[in-house]
């Protein structure tokens, strides 16, 4: 069976404290519930959840949707936003967890990455160093969602050209976003092949495309 690895990277530093992180939790639950309604996702999606502030942490190693239970995301306390370190950590996880095709083994679908953060990187030097590494992982698609009022979109643009921003950080907006994410994941399952660009469904009105 071929797996579709989905990585979700969430910033949990001080800026996300309160409503944003609560909304993300609600959104994640809604997304998983909706993916569970999709037979293709049930048979192929493997999901990993990585949070980061001063240090990155993999709350959920790559787990098949069928057995997945959403872990508890703690309220942020730490101040640092080490986006560079988080991406470096992510690359290592992808390296270890995603299977490439060999003559004797069927490879995974190319992985999808969703990043939710304010785009700021306290470790800007490492961040710039790690960007080529991220590109080398050949993600089927990378979608960045800028959260918060003081975002650094320029940084996000270095990671991907698919950037969305949310009007507000209440739970219904996040639910819309994650619903869209799950639709994108469902499509990611089927449309990889002739082209490397994933054609995503149009985002809902609450989600704005940045560029």
């Amino acid at each position: 069976m071929r797996r579709l690895p989905v990585y979700i990277l969430i910033q949990t530093s001080g800026a996300m404290r309160g409503e944003p992180i609560e909304s993300i939790k609600v959104g994640l639950e809604a997304m998983v519930a909706s993916l569970r309604q999709d037979p293709f996702a049930l048979e192929s999606v493997y999901m990993s959840l990585i949070t980061f502030n001063r240090t990155p942490e993999q709350l959920l190693p790559l787990t098949e949707l069928e057995n997945l239970q959403i872990p508890t995301i703690q309220q942020p306390t730490s101040a640092g936003t080490h986006l560079g370190e988080a991406l470096e950590f992510l690359c290592k996880k992808v390296e270890a967890e995603v299977q490439l095709s060999t003559p004797d083994r069927k490879g995974d679908w190319s992985p999808l990455l969703f990043i939710m953060c304010d785009g700021r990187a306290s470790d800007i030097q490492l961040f710039n160093q790690i960007l080529p590494e991220v590109k080398r992982r050949n993600f089927g698609s990378i979608i960045a969602c800028s959260v918060g009022s003081k975002t650094d979109v320029e940084n996000l643009k270095k990671i991907t050209d698919q950037i969305v921003s949310l009007d507000t950080t209440d739970s219904s907006t996040f639910r819309q976003f994650f619903k869209w994410v799950s639709a994108s994941v469902s499509i990611g399952n089927r449309s990889i092949g002739a082209t490397s660009d994933l054609v995503l469904p149009p985002p809902p009105p609450e989600v704005h495309t940045v560029i």
Binding site: R2, L100, S101, K106, G107, D108, W109, S110, N138, G140, I192, G193, A194
Partner: peptide, 11 residues
């Protein structure tokens, strides 16, 4: 013709 990821091939 297969690539490193599933579903990748030549046309």
């Amino acid at each position: 013709d297969s690539g490193e990821f599933a579903g990748q091939t030549r046309f």
